[in-house]
C-alpha cells in the first residue's frame, strides 16, 4: 500500500552564522535574556554574580521578555546584539 506521509519537513532555515567564541569572558559584556518563567530572574542574577566574580571586568546587560509564551521582540534581540558579546537565556521551566 502506498501512503502519503502526513509529516511535514521543516522549512529550510536561513542559517545563522554564530560569532567566534571568546577564550575568556574577562572584560566582556554578558547578556541575560530572562524568559520570565519563575525563577529565571533569580537564576540569571546568580549566574551574573558568579561570572563577574570569576571574570574580572565583565559587565552584564539584562533583557526581559514580556511573557514566557511569546518570542523576544526584534527590538530586544537588537539590544542584545548591540550590547553583548555573549548571551545566556533559559528555556522551559
Amino acid at each position: 500500500m502506498k501512503l502519503c506521509s502526513p509529516e511535514a519537513q521543516s522549512l529550510p532555515p536561513s542559517s545563522v552564522k554564530p560569532v567566534s567564541r571568546p577564550e575568556s569572558l574577562s572584560g566582556l559584556r554578558i547578556g541575560f535574556l530572562d524568559n520570565t518563567k519563575p525563577p529565571a530572574d533569580k537564576v540569571m542574577a546568580h549566574l551574573d554574580q558568579r561570572l563577574r566574580e570569576r571574570f574580572p571586568g565583565a559587565q552584564s546587560f539584562y533583557v526581559s521578555k514580556t511573557a514566557a509564551s511569546v518570542p523576544a521582540t526584534p527590538e530586544m534581540m537588537q539590544a542584545l546584539k548591540l550590547n553583548c558579546d555573549v548571551v545566556i537565556t533559559g528555556f522551559g521551566d
Partner: peptide
C-alpha cells in the same frame, strides 16, 4: 556553572546543516 563557562569559551562544534525540499514523502507499507 562550570559547564556554562566552558560552553561560552570553547569553539562551537561544526553544525550539521540539513536542507530538505518542501515535498511530500510517499512510503510503501
Amino acid at each position: 556553572f562550570d559547564e556554562i563557562v566552558a560552553k561560552l569559551t570553547t569553539p562551537l562544534p561544526k553544525a550539521q546543516v540539513e536542507s530538505k525540499l518542501a515535498r511530500s514523502l510517499w512510503v510503501e507499507v
